[in-house]
Design a protein around this nucleic acid. Sequence first.
DNA 1: TATAATTCTGAACAGTGTTCAAAGATGCAA
DNA 2: TTGCATCTTTGAACACTGTTCAGAATTATA
Lengths: 243, 243
Amino acid sequence: MPTTPDSGPGGPSRRRASGGRRRPGPRRRLSLELIVDTAIELVEARGLSALSMRSLAERLGTAPGTLYTYVANRSALEALILDAVVARDGLPHELPGTWLEKLETWARKDWVTFREKPWVMELRRANPDFGPASVIWLDSALRVFDGTELPAQVKLDMIDALDAYVLGAATVDVQSNGRAPGPSPELSGKLDEAQLKVPTLFQALSTGATPFSASGFEFGLHCLLAGFRAIAEETRDAPPQAP
Amino acid sequence: MPTTPDSGPGGPSRRRASGGRRRPGPRRRLSLELIVDTAIELVEARGLSALSMRSLAERLGTAPGTLYTYVANRSALEALILDAVVARDGLPHELPGTWLEKLETWARKDWVTFREKPWVMELRRANPDFGPASVIWLDSALRVFDGTELPAQVKLDMIDALDAYVLGAATVDVQSNGRAPGPSPELSGKLDEAQLKVPTLFQALSTGATPFSASGFEFGLHCLLAGFRAIAEETRDAPPQAP
DNA sequence: TATAATTCTGAACAGTGTTCAAAGATGCAA
DNA sequence: TTGCATCTTTGAACACTGTTCAGAATTATA
């Protein structure tokens, strides 16, 4: 189904069957781009929870139902928003350094983005669809490995693994934000009880160690990348079955 | 369980101030345990989206408002549900093998749970609170390292990193479930266009490689654990600053 | 100018979490 | 036993949510 660029991909009425002539009906007062941009403004200002079809419509000066002429439903709108912010600042393959260094700074950049804009993370988690920008992003991620002898599947697996780790770590981090970074208040409240019931945890915390530490993300990132490097060296030393 | 089993910790009215004598008022017809168990039944049968204060109240034969005498709000209810299913089947330190093997099979077990019961994963993502069972679980996770010379912070970092990876990977996996495991339909639909715009991705997919592959989780797990092992060996060869 | 097609509006529907006054139930003291 | 204070339950209500839909308004074409 060749959806025309004029009316949105999710819009119920497909105007201009690639012919070009406008079909009867009043002119559209909005556009997909305007809707998505306004939605992003709204989310950026007041968080994802402040985005509703009603609030968005109000900001646009229309009735809520009007939006459904441009977008199939809220889920489709979120997909558009996500695709609009994917790869907003640079693509992975444009980064400097070796392929490992590119992976590293890309992961770190995503980590920063997720922490600064949790709504991007929430959208990514809730929306499985791969929009055009996401496809281009994946292509760019693969280009990071240009000049490497790794099998395509390994490249994809590395991308996925790194992506999963960053997503998971950011999720946990955003969750535990605002909580005490020191010994958890739950435990410090009943110290003697903790010493009895969870002695190992108690002892670990009393050394000054803390779960969800600031160094936590870097630690896991380092480990994962070390594993990547090892795999790459193995592959180089023992090339594919058919030499 | 230190909290009196009668009235819940989240209940607005704290009955029996550990004195013992009942205070005036009708007998409670429900209990926290009953509420949580029924909620779990409901979720297990029809998914997390089927759980609402109304549906739960109906299943319990009461009015929705009644639930708020036992639980502060929906979020608190979810926390109770989560804590009730955490470590349902075994604790990490009870697993066989070396500490690395314990970590590995624990991660794999969580992975399986998350895929089979996505609602557990959703609850974990949405609920930052560490309930009593979660604290015990963390204690058990630390005991995995018993007999190891690793610093407490490293142990916690390893636990967090592994946890984050499993959570992220399961999230992505559950998302992309139901989608074609082969070349994405979006791309195969417009092959010639893909060949032009995203040649690297196109080429990778044409070799039979696929993103979100079945092997993806195991790959990342392997890499992460390899990193752990390397760190552990480093630490053993170069013990802490003050020998 | 008439017709068909499209958009926009405003009300409505079913659902959500949550609150609250009133009613009923219970223990205790007088 | 009577009265009272306290607690639980109820059912209605509030403010939301996404979504649908008949009707009104607008536009291009025959």
